[in-house]
Amino acid sequence: MATVTFVPQCVAEKICGEFGFTISIMPPGELANINGDYGRLHFDDTETPCPGLVMFDTTMASKAIGWAEINVDDGGSLLVHCEAGISRSAAVAQWLADNMGYELVMHPDGIGTTQFYNRHVYRTLDAANGNNMAAWYAEQEMKYRMMT
């Protein structure tokens, strides 16, 4: 069975070689010392729009889902990391466990709970996967408001 875990960036840099694929949530310009196959996303840890912050959107969610689909077919292990390993990466890992057949494994060097996962990230993954059209419409409304 495919597994997914999430950790802070400092831990990911030490253990990434142990995983089949890593989803790295990092700002542009910052380089993590990640070995092996990885995909990179950039978004801020926010659940509501805020000027100057990058919101997680369905385009990013579709990329993460695509990477996870390839990995789960191989029965591989997936590592998700962000700076703190508490909110954004926890949301992605929890969603993959709930919706794509991954087993969520808490890494001993991680926070050890998904209690604080980012609800916006989880709902947006749902919207990108077609599970929750209400979340998709909310995202469209938010984009419209930011444009006007």
Rank of each mutant, 00 (worst) to 15 (best):
H120I: 07
T22F: 05
P28K: 13
T59H: 13
G110D: 01
G39A: 10
V7Y: 00
Q115F: 13
F21Q: 10
N99A: 06
N33Q: 10
Y137P: 08
D74P: 03
D44R: 05
L125A: 05
Q94C: 15
S24M: 07
G36L: 02
L79D: 08
G17K: 12
G20S: 14
T22V: 11
E13T: 04
S24N: 14
I25G: 07
Y38G: 03
L31K: 14
P28S: 07
I15N: 06
S62N: 15
P28V: 14
T114Y: 02
V4G: 04
A68L: 07
E103N: 12
S77R: 03
L96T: 02
G130H: 06
I23F: 04
Q140I: 11
M26F: 09
D73W: 12
V54P: 04
F6T: 03
S24Y: 12
W95N: 03
I34F: 09
A12E: 11
T59E: 15
A90Y: 00
R88Y: 09
E141M: 09
Q115C: 07
H42F: 12
M133P: 09
R119A: 10
G36A: 08
V121A: 05
Q9T: 09
M60Y: 07
D126N: 15
A91K: 01
G39M: 12
L41Y: 08
Q9W: 13
A134M: 13
T114F: 00
I15G: 04
D45C: 03
C82R: 03
H107P: 12
T3G: 01
G130W: 06
I23M: 04
M142V: 13
N131C: 06
C10A: 05
V92L: 14
Y117R: 15
E69N: 11
K63S: 13
G17M: 04
